[in-house]
């Protein structure tokens, strides 16, 4: 099995892919997310976004005092369509 270091396990985004994307000029968390798919799997960035921020800060590409994660949209926990439908039209 090829050796790979993963930044995001949900979407199979490796450190090499992040390096490559940074080489193309994408240095913001939002850009890297959109380009590599990082943070868009089942965990929605719970495991990876802090690690990515740390990596960018360590390389001087992000300011630790200002760096922010990408938007955390609902659902942050699994929910079934059946449960959502239970709200009807009111909520």
């Amino acid at each position: 099995m090829p050796k790979r270091t993963f930044v995001c396990r949900c979407e199979d985004v490796t450190l090499a892919e992040i390096d490559h994307a940074i080489g193309l000029g994408m240095t913001k968390i939002e850009e890297l997310k959109r380009y590599t798919g990082l943070g868009t799997g089942p965990c929605q960035g719970k495991e990876c976004v802090g690690g990515l921020a740390a990596l960018l800060c360590a390389r001087g590409l992000a300011d630790p005092d200002r760096v922010q994660p990408f938007t955390a949209r609902p659902p942050t926990e699994p929910v079934t369509f059946g449960a959502l439908a239970a709200a009807g039209d009111d909520e």
Partner: peptide
């Protein structure tokens, strides 16, 4: 079947904790 809750609280106390990130080592998956 799961139950849906819609909650309209006056105050919310978040004690939702923390999560372990991965460690960037070859074959960390």
């Amino acid at each position: 079947p799961p139950t849906l809750h819609t909650i309209r609280p006056r105050h919310v106390l978040l004690c939702v904790g923390a999560r372990p990130p991965t460690i960037p080592l070859p074959n960390n998956d």
